[in-house]
Design a protein around this nucleic acid. Structure first.
Lengths: 245, 245
DNA sequence: GAATGAAGGACGGACAACCAAACCTTTTCT
DNA sequence: AGAAAAGGTTTGGTTGTCCGTCCTTCATTC
């Protein structure tokens, strides 16, 4: 009977429908967005942000709100500003250390990984459909960079993020790019304090190569398959170290 | 050189990093959440919402804010309230017609489909890992319901949503359930005004069956493959009817 | 038939976030 | 020297949200 199905299926639904609707303030969201982009190295040290008057327009917020965010980012050392013509707000050179993952972050690490799986799978399949030759050439270069950074995890991680975000860009979906940067930001917090021996990074990079090859051959399902294995790597490591594994 | 790769890869990035940070108000988000759940039939007509004093606590908002949202939903005819003991707020029986998709909705239909692809692929793979026997039995019943509703698109659509959301629930990821309901809400707006002849629905349902079978056999990749084909069905229809196809 | 309790409904004050528009200060380029 | 382009400052007003309190309705219970 349909009634039975409804009763069974509807069990956990209200938990999702009636879950908290805590929306971040414009200030918080701005700090999050810019801060994540800087931490991930998407905004490179030394690079200049758009002028405040232009940036607040792009972000759709008031200038005073943007300044709050920039003040916060400057106090945390991610950014500094110089005045006068030719001045501006710049990404700081020595990046402050990533803050340790919060308890609630650790409690929800599995949800974070699930989210990542969805984003990365979607990206893999769509990239296989839409990535252009030039995109893939650039991504291959990044994979080469990765191979030279097996000993320096910070450098490796940054190039890794660039590769995954770059793959998302090749789908031409701004939503997926945003979701990917968000996800990578959350993952960085999780894996920053975990040991990554060179051989792990090396095998991870082998998967990158195979992934790009599959995308190049427009084989979305093989790309998805490789991506799944790729992500399960980190997931297994986390499962061994964190509660709820 | 790494420099070249960076320059190529960074082309569209700022568009995502500096995109508007439009955060919805608590009021708007609440209307959206409850309204979508009602439109999708996840909150069935006649069912009672939790009492205001309890619901505002669950949603993490003030009661006055919740009342704003409920007032809006009652004025749009989705909900009605009765006073006194044993009263409450109930989902209206005759659902008001879905509003036609807005122009900006239509302009972004491809992004919506991309988002859906990601969510559904993640759900398919994770469900194949985690769905329990009882979940799948309930989903099979829903698939049977679907087969009896080939002539009534409204009924078919509602059961279809239930099935997809139910599959998301079987992953035990509240985030994915939320993402799925959001996505289904957006999709409903898009496909409400498109003809769906019975044979299309029938073949769509064949895919449901195959999907559930793959999940039951814990074959995540086959589930992903079938899901991709399943989604491409609607996508091709939309591509033929909407701009930017 | 009166009391109780559980529900929605209404009001008012306080506060924080956000916006808008000016104006000031510093620096560089012409 | 002056114009231009940037960050820095101030002010005032609007809106969303919260909190607490009280009122009204009405089924149940005594």
């Amino acid at each position: 009977m349909a009634g039975t199905a409804e009763r069974r299926t509807a069990r956990m639904l209200p938990n999702a429908v009636f879950a908290p609707v805590r929306s971040l303030t414009a200030f918080e969201e701005t700090v999050e967005r810019l801060g994540t982009a800087i931490k991930l190295g998407l905004l490179t040290p030394g690079s200049r942000l758009p002028a405040e008057r232009e940036l607040c327009a792009r972000l759709g917020i008031a200038r005073s709100t943007l300044r709050q965010a920039l003040t916060a980012l400057s106090q945390s050392g991610h950014v500094f500003a110089t005045r006068g013509r030719g001045g501006g707000t710049f990404v700081s050179d020595p990046q402050p250390p990533t803050d340790p993952p919060s308890p609630e972050m650790l409690a929800l690490w599995r949800e974070t990984c699930d989210q990542r799986l969805a984003v990365e799978l979607g990206v893999a399949v769509l990239a296989a459909e839409r990535a252009e030759r030039a995109d893939l050439d650039a991504l291959d270069e990044l994979a080469a960079t990765l191979e030279g950074a097996l000993e320096d995890f910070a450098a490796y991680r940054q190039a890794d993020v660039r590769l995954h975000v770059g793959l998302a860009e090749s789908t031409r979906s701004t939503q997926l790019v945003r979701a990917m940067t968000e996800t990578q930001g959350a993952m960085t917090d999780l894996i920053a304090y975990i040991a990554h021996p060179p051989q792990v990074l090396s095998s991870s990079n082998t998967q990158h190569r195979r992934l790009l090859a599959a995308v190049r051959e427009r084989d979305g399902m093989r790309a998805a398959q490789i991506m799944t294995e790729h992500l399960q790597g980190t997931e297994h490591i986390l499962a061994g170290l964190l509660p709820g594994g």
